[in-house]
């Protein structure tokens, strides 16, 4: 059999993701794509553009802005929206804003709950979206490994891992009652390496923070944290150091640990990753709060 009869793993993953994205658009009344600005979102956005070419995206993107994202992320977000002519919605939890909720004053648990989980629920309810695309991958974390591609949520956005619909072949059950919704995960079967290989193959732009550069960092909660603005408290006598660092994942800057690195290209990033000895989410503060913490957050509506 000739090799033309065989798809590479990236071709197969790409085709499956496009299939999922088209199915959601065909079956749901009002879909939205949750855009978190990270590399997975960049890949998901690229796949969606492929799914509907030569037409435009038939849904808006939405960013839940906690007000604590890296400034470079926000600049990249706005640039991407302009370049691609995207319909981008931005939502910040007004209650959290009023109460001044932040990761430094309130801790990562409260901050994530109020500014991400609650904010997301508010936004979904406010716009009446019945399907929301997310860039989560099953290889990220144990509870995600069991998530369905079409993940069913009650009218109050709850997830019940014991009551998930079986998913057979690529036939997705899209039936919901009024008020209920689904989260759809087109990247379910991708790994971190697949994502980088695909970014390389397709030349997809990503936030420059993924590549190493001398950046001002200090030790904070046992991580190297970048001093992105003056809201980060600098302890008496300490001063930010300039270190060549990059980020494996991107979130709120005080909660995202930098890794020492000299990788300035996708190839170098992948080389470091292949040689690395820690898994991707180890740099995220929120997964370590307690055992099974991601599962608890997800039941409550976290992406």
């Amino acid at each position: 059999m000739s090799s033309a009869d065989r798809l590479t793993h990236l071709q197969r993953l790409e085709a499956e993701s496009i299939h999922i994205i088209r199915e959601v658009v065909a079956e749901f009344r009002k879909p939205v794509m949750l855009y978190s600005i990270g590399k997975d979102s960049s890949v998901m956005l690229h796949l969606a553009r492929k799914a509907f070419a030569p037409g435009p995206l038939p849904f808006p993107l939405m960013h839940i802005d906690t007000t604590w994202k890296f400034r470079e992320m926000i600049a990249f977000r706005d640039q991407t929206a302009r370049d691609l002519g995207l319909d981008l919605l931005i939502h910040t939890n007004p209650d959290g804003l009023r109460d001044g909720v932040g990761p430094i004053t309130h801790g990562s648990g409260v901050h994530t709950d109020v500014m991400k989980t609650q904010a997301l629920k508010q936004a979904l309810t406010r716009y009446g979206f019945d399907a929301a695309f997310g860039g989560a991958r099953r290889d990220e974390e144990a509870s995600r490994a069991k998530e369905r591609v079409f993940s069913f949520r009650t009218a109050t956005h709850q997830w019940d891992p014991r009551n998930q619909r079986p998913e057979l072949w690529s036939i997705y059950n899209a039936r919901i009652q009024t008020g209920e919704s689904i989260r759809a995960f087109p990247l379910s079967n991708w790994t971190e390496l697949d994502v980088w290989q695909y970014i390389h193959q397709e030349d997809i732009p990503v936030v420059p923070l993924y590549f190493a550069k001398p950046r001002p960092v200090i030790q904070h909660n046992g991580m190297w944290v970048m001093v992105d603005d003056d809201r980060l408290p600098i302890p008496e006598g300490a001063a930010p150091e300039m270190k060549s660092v990059r980020f494996r994942t991107l979130g709120c800057y005080p909660l995202t640990g930098a890794v020492a690195s000299t990788a300035t290209t996708v190839a170098e990033v992948v080389a470091e990753m292949l040689n690395s000895r820690t898994s991707e989410r180890a740099g995220r503060a929120i997964d370590h709060d307690q055992a099974g913490s991601m599962e608890l957050k997800k039941r409550d509506g976290y992406f």
């Binding site: 798809l7 590479t8 390496l193 290989q197 190839a267 080389a271 292949l274 040689n275």
Partner: peptide, 21 residues
């Protein structure tokens, strides 16, 4: 084993990128 630039290039563009699933 460590991956140098050449080995990585192979992962990204070479035979390993032709891996099937």
């Amino acid at each position: 084993r460590t991956f140098d630039a050449a080995a990585t290039e192979a992962v990204l563009s070479g035979k390993a990128a032709e891996r099937d699933l």
